[in-house]
């Protein structure tokens, strides 16, 4: 009896495994995960090809890509030279969309608070512990803040969103740069950890008094309040599609950035970009692939998919609050994809 049951199970599994189609597996950044979910679903409808993407965090995206357990990775923190060398050297960063990192909070009845870099850093450094602190009130005349402790929410996993956010803080606050620094995972002075952008948004949603940083779509789709941040021009800017695109335009004005893009290196930073309408915490997100694909069948599917993502796929970005790539960048990216060797 037991033998029969085992036989049936084995036979079933064998037939099942033979019936499989080619699936391209990718994992990484949670920042663009809602968009990739949408893109891959649409891509499957259009072409029948299955691209499986799982949001596990940018750190994981790079690690699993390097370990070879995924066919491509996703990250919002560009790989360092050492990481690229570990992954075999032939790594191509394909930018897909841009997104804003929103500072999101949960204070019922208190909308549109304004923060500047110093106060934001002090909150995440644990120097400002309560919502009715004078420094917050000074930036928000006329708003009455409750006497509530601030619960800082941050990522518990290696995260590109963290990388973008801490890079911003390190650039604008010397004490942040000295005490904490910037990276995919840092030693947080205060707060609770949530897994993925979703986890942090979840923490903010269920805990009154919480504040954290999440990709814009996680905040908006979920009805979380977002703070207006003071940019380099001294204006308080709300994170939106337009202020994200404005930041990209501002960043591309720099000679150095333009040179990088023209040479096919898309690891550009959009952080604290100039321009009066630019939101200060903006980042690109990349898919990482090998320039030399070993498996011809998979390589072809992957190439087609990448080309679709940066062209046709861009139209799905705005409805999920990601900013499409600027035209000038897009053309360069397409030719980079064409250069992938199968």
């Amino acid at each position: 009896m037991i033998k029969k049951a085992l036989g049936v199970i084995c036979a079933g599994l064998l037939t099942a495994s033979m019936a499989s189609a080619v699936v391209i597996n990718g994992a990484g950044a949670t920042f663009p995960y809602p968009l990739y979910l949408k893109l891959n679903t649409e891509y499957q409808k259009a072409t029948g090809k299955q691209i499986n993407y799982q949001g596990i965090g940018s750190g994981g995206g790079i690690r699993q890509f390097t370990a070879g357990t995924t066919d491509f990775g996703g990250t919002d923190a560009a790989m360092t030279e050492k990481e690229i060398a570990d992954a075999g050297g032939d790594v191509l960063h394909i930018p897909t969309v841009m997104g804003a990192v929103a500072v999101s909070y949960n204070l019922p009845g208190v909308k549109d608070i304004k923060l500047d870099a110093g106060v934001l850093a002090d909150i995440f450094l644990g120097k400002i512990k309560n919502w009715d602190h004078s420094a917050i009130a000074a930036l928000n005349p006329g708003v009455s803040f409750p006497n509530k402790p601030i619960l800082v929410a941050h990522r518990s996993d290696g995260s590109g969103t963290t990388d973008i956010f801490t890079n911003y803080l390190a650039r604008v606050s010397t004490s942040w740069a000295a005490k904490v620094g910037a990276g995919k995972a840092v030693k947080w002075p205060v707060g609770v950890g949530g897994k993925g952008n979703a986890g942090v948004a979840g923490v903010i949603k269920v805990n009154e008094g919480a504040i954290g940083y999440v990709e814009l779509s996680y905040a908006m789709e979920n009805g979380l309040s977002v703070a207006l941040l003071k940019n380099r021009a001294g204006k308080f800017i709300r994170p939106t599609l337009d202020s994200t695109s404005a930041a990209a335009a501002g960043a591309l004005e720099a000679e150095k950035t333009r040179k990088m893009v023209n040479s096919g290196d898309f690891r550009i930073s959009l952080c604290n970009a100039p321009g009066k309408d630019s939101y200060p915490i903006v980042g690109l997100t990349w898919l990482i692939v090998h320039k030399n694909q070993k498996n011809a069948e998979k390589g072809k599917i992957l190439k087609d998919y990448l080309r679709w993502v940066v062209t046709t796929g861009q139209k799905y970005a705005p409805e999920l609050l990601y900013a499409p790539l600027p035209e000038t960048v897009k053309n360069k990216v397409v030719s980079a994809i064409d250069g992938i060797k199968i």
């Binding site: 599994l13 099942a16 499989s20 699936v23 994992a27």
Partner: peptide, 14 residues
């Protein structure tokens, strides 16, 4: 086992 967005019947796939 990881995770997948699709139907999967292959034992060597996530």
């Amino acid at each position: 086992a990881f995770n997948s967005m699709y139907w999967n019947f292959a034992v060597d796939q996530p």
